[in-house]
Design a protein around this nucleic acid. Sequence first.
DNA 1: CACACTTACGATATTCGTAAGGATT
DNA 2: AATCCTTACGAATATCGTAAGTGTG
Lengths: 308, 308
Amino acid sequence: MNLSSRQLKAFLTLVEERHFTRAARRCHLTQPAFSALIQSLEDALGVRLFDRSTRRVELTPEGRHFRRSAPRLLNDMEALVGEMRELASKRRGRVAVAALPSLAAGWLPRIYAAYSAQYPGVELSLHDALLEPCLQQVREGAVDMALAAQGRDMGGLSAEPLCEDLFYLVCRRDHALATERAVELKALRGQRMIHLGKGSSIRQSLSSHAALDAMQTALEVDHLATVTGLILAGLGMSLVPGMTLFHFRHPDLSIVPLAPGSEIRRQLYLVRRDNRGLSQAATAFHELLMRERDTLAPEGKFAIRETP
Amino acid sequence: MNLSSRQLKAFLTLVEERHFTRAARRCHLTQPAFSALIQSLEDALGVRLFDRSTRRVELTPEGRHFRRSAPRLLNDMEALVGEMRELASKRRGRVAVAALPSLAAGWLPRIYAAYSAQYPGVELSLHDALLEPCLQQVREGAVDMALAAQGRDMGGLSAEPLCEDLFYLVCRRDHALATERAVELKALRGQRMIHLGKGSSIRQSLSSHAALDAMQTALEVDHLATVTGLILAGLGMSLVPGMTLFHFRHPDLSIVPLAPGSEIRRQLYLVRRDNRGLSQAATAFHELLMRERDTLAPEGKFAIRETP
DNA sequence: CACACTTACGATATTCGTAAGGATT
DNA sequence: AATCCTTACGAATATCGTAAGTGTG
């Protein structure tokens, strides 16, 4: 047994036309070929659907019964094919991304804007979250990919390098270091540092640096915006990734690069589930991401440019 | 664009098995042929539905979307084909017949019983009505056929002879004619006759007989059962078709044939709409009817046998 | 006799199965 | 090395279009 959309369409065309030759034309077939198509349908169903003499073409009682269901069925088929084609052409679809707050706020919005312009029908969603929740969402399949650092357990995940993010010193303009062109890490000895809490991936990147031990951790907070306020209040200084610098553009703050040889960097990745394909829409997003990744914090310049 | 039930079935089988070779077996195909079938579906939709490596076969995101709709679609298709096949095999269907009251009460029930035994799934309906309503229902398509006499206007209808129905004299046992082997029409001169009303086809058959003018129409009623009562009450006698004789089987009534040369007969027909095919179920009914038509009142014997 | 559906038939396109190829574990 | 999907290719099948046949008004 087999039933095809062509047969249904031929049937319904013939019902409308009540005329094989005309219906055949509408189906882009010669009349005998069309005749055979109708016959194949009748054979498949085991019933004659049309009573035809050379002068009249009419539905049989069984044909009338078939006609009650056929239009809905054909419509369902065509709707489904249409939907799939829309997915294929990325005229519709859904891409869900998780990203660290720094990326979510700084670089990603530009990517989202570019993607939306090209594929206006695709639904985008963005989950800004700390490192582990980001990775967890990838594992659960709640998002197609995450833009994050590496986590403790990367089992079942694959990470594709996205960019390196250099750390900068942020201090108050009236601080002694504020006017330096670049600072050595050892110059930070004994300085009062303001850091993010342990859940933060920024803090995790810093933790691996031995040089940090020499500094004094004055305060631990959870949000970068708070860090700004604390520095301005004269409570200390902070080391933050280039990507977050737009938080610190303030007349009373200075941003000072770390001297060559003293760089601290964190590696950011695009994290996906192992062995799991992306949807068409997500693939296009991924490609855009990779194409644009050079615009992402080459020496933090992008981040600075971002807030003109 | 084309989409077939085979493709859908193959898709769903592969979703279940997650294994081309096994799925192919279940579809009675070799594995490469099955592979090609899946590819033809993917081509039709314009999207890859499965991510396949040699070790794993998994749905793509688009495949998962397709899978949400595919089962219902396939089910609808198979249900429709199944329904049509049931109609074809007469395991289901509907036959609607209109018949004159005499046929509806006497002969048809036996036919209905035989048909029901053979096609228990087919719904039967019987409309007993006078001649014109019978024909009207055929015209309207409310019934597949009617068992009736010819009407005044038979336009758009085709009548197939069913049987001849001889008229009999019914009188009270104590009447002078009651003991005759057969009566001449002229013997009825001046007798008080009880007839059916003008809507009745029996009356219409009689009306065409000149001999009737010589008789005295004592009473006109609408139901044969009433005729019985009137005759028993000694109010007259009646001429009725053989097919209705079962109404008159009564110890105090006599049924007397009309003498050769004096016969009155009415012709009964199977009436259908012109140029309109019958459903499979109705065709089977029609065939049964024609096969059994010889059991219908050959000289009225059936009607008499009917009430043993 | 003209129109319209079916049948006949050769050509083309699809689909099938067998066998070989290539990738993954 | 074993498994399993894909590709290759000749054969069987289906489908198409042209042309002839048939029936109806």
